[in-house]
């Protein structure tokens, strides 16, 4: 997977992971992939719901020791 940009949202609380994700995805091109790293437990459903609603594609997601990794392909 070719990651264009990584957003480190570790330690950030609601609503910041989503707000930052939105801001960062505006900086990449359509088809490129943004990696979001977050520790907020709510981000699992937050980022997933946001990605779906805004038309982007959640290519992959994983969780390692309480850290969430999201890979979002920009629409």
């Amino acid at each position: 997977m070719n990651i264009e940009k990584t957003l480190d949202a570790k330690g950030l609380a609601c609503p910041m992971p989503v707000v930052r994700t939105k801001k960062t995805i505006d900086e990449i091109e359509s088809g490129q992939i943004l990696e979001v790293v977050a520790t907020d437990a709510g981000s699992k459903s937050d980022i997933t719901a946001w990605t779906k609603s805004s038309g982007h594609e959640l290519v992959d997601m994983k969780e390692e020791d309480g850290v969430f990794y999201f890979y979002i392909k920009k629409a």
Partner: peptide, 11 residues
């Protein structure tokens, strides 16, 4: 304000 900022991130 959290809801408002979240909604803004939803465009």
């Amino acid at each position: 304000y959290i809801i408002a900022n979240g909604a803004a991130a939803y465009d």
